[in-house]
Each structure stands twice: as C-alpha cells, then as structure tokens.
Design a protein around this nucleic acid. Structure first.
Lengths: 141, 141
DNA sequence: CTTTAACTGTTTGCATACGAATGATATGCA
DNA sequence: TGCATATCATTCGTATGCAAACAGTTAAAG
C-alpha cells in the first residue's frame, strides 16, 4: 500500500522534452526545406540516394520506419516524381526503389537545406553543446 | 554556381536523432504505462490534474498540442471515462475539462509509471549525462 | 454603442506512425 | 522433394500532428 503522492514534473520528463524539441525542429524544417517535403520524406530520399537501389522493406529499416509507414512515404514520393519503383526479376516479392532523374537533381539542394535546418535547430547551443547533445541522443536511440 | 557535392550524414543530424530517440521512448512507454494510454493522452491527463479545471484550448497550449490535436485527445479520454467536459456558464465559447473520479484514482499509478518510463529511457546514460540531456533539450525546445 | 479585433472551439484535409493480419514468394533443412 | 520458416508488400484500424477555414462569442477601441 503506497499512499505517498508522487511528485511528477512533466516539463522535466525526457519523453515530453523529446516531443517539444521534435516539434520545434519540424517547424524549422517546414520553413526551410526545398520543395514541399516532410522530414520523413527527406530522410527516405537520403537513404535511397545512399543505396542507389533498395527494396521497400529494407528502405524502411534504413530510414527507421514501419513497413506500413514507408509504403505511404514511398507512394507520395512516387506521386511527386522523385522516386520510381520496378519489380525485381530475381525476387518477385521485392520492389526496387530508386531516384528518378528529377530526384537526383534536387539531392544536392536538399542536403544543403538539411544542414541549414540542423544548424538552425541547434542555434541555441554552442558547438560543444551541440556535439554533446548528438552524442547523448545516439546513446538513447 | 555550386558544383561541390555536399557531405550529408543523416545519422548525425539532430532531426533524425530526435525521431529515433522518440521512437525508442514510445516503445518503452507503450510497454510500461498503466491502462492503454498514449504519451500524448498521458501528458494531457497530467496537465488536467495540475489545473483542476481548464478550457480545451488552454489545455492544448499547456500540453503543447494543436487545437485540432487536443480535441481528438480529449475526445478519446472522454470515451475512456477519464475526463469530463461541461459548458462554462460565464463564457459560452469555453468548455471546462476536468478529471472524472476514475481519472483521479489512476493518477498516482500513472505518475509512478511515468517516472519508471523516464528512467528506462535514460538507462543508457549516467545520472550526470541524463541531467545534461534534459538541460540541452530544454534549450532547443 | 457599434464596429473591430481577439479568442474559442469545430471540422476538413493531408501526412506521419505503428500494430496486426493477410497473401505471395523464397529459402533452408530434413 | 517438400514443408516449416522467414521475408516482402499490402491493407486495416487507431492515434497523433498541423494548416486552414469556419462560426460563435467576448472584449476592446472608437
């Protein structure tokens, strides 16, 4: 039997703070990214450009998205004409995803915008603090 | 004219890392929370219990949620029987939100679970690192 | 006192996000 | 070979999350 009231300060909890920081970052992203891309669409494009050609399932793992989520993201990127899909002749289950010519063309601008967005997000911190934050976040991921 | 390719490492970007950390936290939350509550529903309950009675709009600001988002969250909490709403006689625009008796009863268990979830999320870090992370996240929120 | 501005709540549309279930296909091992 | 297991893509249901448009209400400015 525990009758002692619990002292819970929401504003100090890691989960709440992660959501706040993500929200601010999303806002900055939206105002600065090239084209009308979302953060997940952006990450997906980066992963595809790194891989050249990749199955949808593997792409989801690389971009840290659920299979149901990555399907929607790929569908919207296809609709934008930035990626294409074609069946894998060796494995009929697989659908190979790759960048279109247009997709290739915007990658450099996207990467530049991405770096700028990261800088703006970390603007309240010093260089050393930014490095620390990145290191700590990697540890709890 | 810029022809130099940009060196962009997705795994080092603050936005990507925030998403990864949020995902891990959500998984821990889901496995440890009392009842079938989501992190946003949890935060909302905490805010209501802090305020006693609060308008839906103000509740959204306190919990850092869009007006459209908070409406859905409150609707689902009402469906679970944890919160109630009644019209404000002084201001016909307002809807006063408060906890039900059931809602009150589970708050202590919820807070205990919340602290446990934070501990589990920060488990890979030392006490000092956890404090640093919290401090840095507050700065970029 | 009236018009204007600000606030509150609702709804719609789009885009994540994830669990669970399903069906098709591959592959390893008995 | 043949079956158990694993992988891949899709679909469904639920829950955020935000912009924008809308209507009702209140308060402030003139």
């Amino acid at each position: 039997m525990n009758t002692v009231p619990v002292d819970y300060v929401l504003d100090d909890q890691i989960g709440f703070l992660l959501r706040l920081a993500s929200q601010r970052h999303s806002g900055i992203f939206q105002r600065n990214v090239v084209g009308k891309l979302t953060p997940t669409q952006f990450s997906t494009l980066i992963r595809i450009s790194e891989q050249g050609e990749v199955s949808q399932n593997r792409l989801g793992r690389l971009a840290a998205m659920d299979v149901a989520t990555i399907k929607g993201v790929v569908d919207r990127l296809k609709a934008k004409g930035l990626v294409q899909a074609h069946a894998d002749p060796k494995d009929k289950r697989r659908i190979a995803i790759s960048l279109t010519a247009t997709g290739h063309q915007i990658m450099d601008d996207l990467k530049r915008a991405g770096l700028e967005i990261s800088d703006l997000t970390l603007e309240p911190l010093t260089e050393a603090e930014s490095q620390t934050l990145v290191t700590l976040l990697k540890k709890i991921s």
